[in-house]
Design a protein around this nucleic acid. Structure first.
Length: 256
DNA sequence: ATGTCACCTGGTAGGTGA
């Protein structure tokens, strides 16, 4: 049975809802997790997504952050944010769908390596790792996906020299990414040959998309038990060419 | 290029975060 699981940072679901609905018509994935919905829970467009054929779980807040999980089949055991980690920011939504534990996350940006927000990012990453380790004990078939705000390697950066030591590229962030892999997860995108200079995010400024100056910071990590079922993992650049696009592209995992 | 976009406050611009 083929199954597709996707992630997309939509940068405001109220602005991007028409694009999301159009994309889902062309790509009727089984599950998609969204980041930066920027909506309080009372404003979540549940009816529109239901009409599109999706169950929805959501966890938002005013102005910033906000995540959601849409699924063709109903979702169970829904968790919002990292259990035991007190957090005012809505960044995580997890659920079980069709026997797969799906953890959708909007990792903190961190702003700059010497900022308070970077400290928060480090604490959040530590808490995430501990919790995902526990989840893996309970769920052999697990996917951790979302906007990681980490470019794991230099080949994930259009100008690694300019970005060296900058946010998304610091050794501390990259070590955290490796720590997640060490739990028994694999970066699905790198299971396959990919075109060089494949990015998932392009700054709105500087004509970055036109010049293909981006970063690969949106990731799909799969557990060892799921790895054998992975048949593809791709970034869909097409929505970045839309009028009024999100600055991120969706990433899609295909399971056999 | 400090070059954009989204959202908020509070007001017809400016600040914040990404």
């Amino acid at each position: 049975m083929t199954q597709q699981i996707a992630t997309w940072n939509v940068n405001s679901l109220s602005v991007r809802l028409p694009q999301l609905l159009a994309w889902l018509v062309e790509h009727p994935v089984d599950v998609i997790v969204l980041q930066e919905t920027k909506l309080t829970d009372d404003k979540f467009p549940h009816a529109e997504l239901q009409a599109a054929g999706y169950h929805a779980q959501w966890f938002g807040q005013r102005t910033y952050n906000g995540v959601a999980l849409l699924s063709r089949q109903s979702a169970t055991d829904v968790v919002r944010n990292i259990p035991g980690f007190a957090d005012e920011q809505a960044r995580v939504i997890a659920a079980t769908v069709d026997g797969v534990r799906v953890i959708g996350a909007y990792f903190p940006n961190g702003q700059a390596p010497d900022s308070d927000k970077f400290g928060y990012k480090m604490r959040w990453l530590e808490a995430l790792r501990t919790w995902v380790g526990q989840e893996l004990v309970q769920h052999r078939h697990l996917v951790l996906l979302g906007d990681f705000n980490i470019a794991p390697e230099d080949r994930d950066v259009y100008d690694p020299v300019a970005w060296a030591g900058q946010i998304h590229c610091t050794p501390q962030e990259r070590a955290h990414f490796q720590d997640l892999l060490a739990l028994g997860l694999v970066d699905a995108f790198r299971l396959f040959d990919q075109a060089p200079k494949s990015w998932s995010w392009w700054d709105y400024r500087n004509l970055a998309f036109r010049k293909n100056q981006g970063l690969r910071i949106d990731h799909i990590l799969v557990s060892e038990a799921l790895r054998a079922r992975v048949s593809a993992c791709n970034i869909d650049k097409a929505p970045r060419k839309n009028e009024r696009p999100s600055d991120h592209a969706p990433v899609v995992l295909t399971l056999q």
